[in-house]
Amino acid sequence: MDIERITPAEALRRQRDGALLIDVRERHERAAGHAKGAMGIAKAELEADPQAVVPDRDAVVLLICQSGQRSLAAANALLAAGYRRVASVEGGTTRWIAEGLPLAPPDADSDFYDRYSRHLRLPEVGEAGQRRLQSARIAMVGAGGLGSPAAFYLAAAGVGSLVLADDDVVDRSNLQRQILHTEARIGVAKVESARIALSALNPTVQVDVFPERITAANVERLIADADVVIDGADNFPVRYLLNDACVKLGKPLVYGAVHRFEGQVSVFDAGRHRGHAPCYRCLFPEPPPPEAAPNCAEAGVLGVLPGVIGLLQATEAIKLILGIGEPLSGRLLHFDALGMRFRETRLPADPECPVCAEGREFPGYIDYVRFCAA
């Protein structure tokens, strides 16, 4: 038996005569607006138990979706389940709107459903995962080359709160790679410039600025409430300090570093997984000599390279919050931009690590500047 296909105008007429109109789109699709008076039941839910929605198999049921394809498939499912008076609305909600037929107003939370609609379509994310992102807090050290792309994509992804720590101001030489900043904001504090850019992209994200140099006296205040910490620092004293604080407080640390044409990314999660996951000190028990690791101002850096590494850091942070995929914990990912190659190095936890060894008490913060200069 062929399913009857009707116009939106005919559907409206039958609805007013007592027919049941059901919108079979997903909730986030219906949130932007739907046919007035339509009952919202996702196609999968309707097909799983149609009698829970329409107990009377003789009822007149009209199905509508976005374009008419899903509603037609759902109508066939109802027909197979014994429903005899089923029709599908051709052109769906798109045509309903184009013809100026009555609409229910968008949901109060329509920005959420509209903005993150592509996330909501992913079974690994869905509404529950997006709500987790919305309630998450990420602390980032550095609003420069690595922090710029990471912060942009975390804000776009809907991470609820971003804490940005940087005590520097925007310089023209930053603009080659630090995409949070603009020519017009040269001389402005980087965290304030970042706040302006991120709020313009996604005004629903809370951006807390931390215009201070990170020290042992304030690092815990920065990361205490964070779910994930991102290391976008450009010097070894801050890297070691951040690592030690994350081990002490049990925070996952997403590490990234760049040098000329090469970059590295990893996740150090020793604070939550003592003896199983490494920390930064397991990789670098001691800092390299200054001549072996010059900074970007001394050695230069390909402008797009921090973009690649920062996006990988943002990806790892999102995975950690959602609890999906395989994080880079225990693995160091190397990127060679000139060769366009990735390679991976396994990183075991160091059983003798002075900070993260299983059963070892936190030794306390040290003079990191002196440690790195020794």
Results as ranks from 00 to 15, higher is better:
G68D: 08
A150H: 04
I214N: 04
D17T: 02
G18W: 10
R132W: 02
E326C: 00
G359Q: 10
A59I: 03
P289G: 01
R25Q: 14
A38H: 05
V238F: 08
A44M: 11
D167M: 06
L154H: 05
P290S: 14
S266K: 04
F152P: 00
E99P: 05
A108F: 08
F335H: 12
E192G: 00
F261K: 04
R121A: 14
A104Q: 13
E291V: 14
G307A: 07
P348E: 12
F335P: 04
A77Y: 09
E344L: 14
T93C: 06
G300T: 09
A139W: 10
S148F: 02
R185I: 03
V188G: 01
V308D: 05
H28Y: 15
A374L: 11
G147A: 10
V308A: 09
R84E: 13
R30H: 11
P123A: 14
D2Y: 04
T7M: 05
R213F: 09
V265W: 02
L302H: 07
D111E: 13
M340F: 13
A77M: 11
A373Q: 15
F112I: 08
I318Y: 04
V304L: 14
L120D: 02
M340S: 13
R84V: 14
I309E: 06
L242H: 12
V209Y: 03
L249R: 12
R95M: 15
F371H: 15
A216W: 00
S193P: 06
S71I: 10
A104K: 05
A226S: 08
V229R: 04
A293G: 00
G323P: 12
E361A: 15
H181F: 11
R85M: 00
R274G: 14
E99S: 07
D109Q: 10
A108M: 03
A150M: 01
L63K: 03
A32Q: 11
L333Q: 09
S67D: 00
F268Y: 12
V247S: 08
A349R: 09
F371D: 09
C372A: 07
A194V: 09
V238G: 06
A38P: 03
G40K: 00
D171M: 07
R360M: 11
C353N: 11
S329V: 12
P287S: 15
V229E: 08
F335E: 03
I318S: 01
V219P: 03
R281P: 05
A31Q: 02
R272D: 08
D244A: 05
Q130I: 05
P289K: 15
I214F: 02
G100I: 10
V265E: 03
H334T: 03
L78D: 01
P105D: 11
A189E: 13
L328E: 07
M39A: 15
I97N: 01
G339L: 13
P105I: 07
K248H: 09
P351H: 05
A74D: 10
P211T: 01
V24N: 02
A139Y: 11
D225H: 12
G275D: 01
H28E: 02
P237T: 10
Q66F: 09
P105A: 15
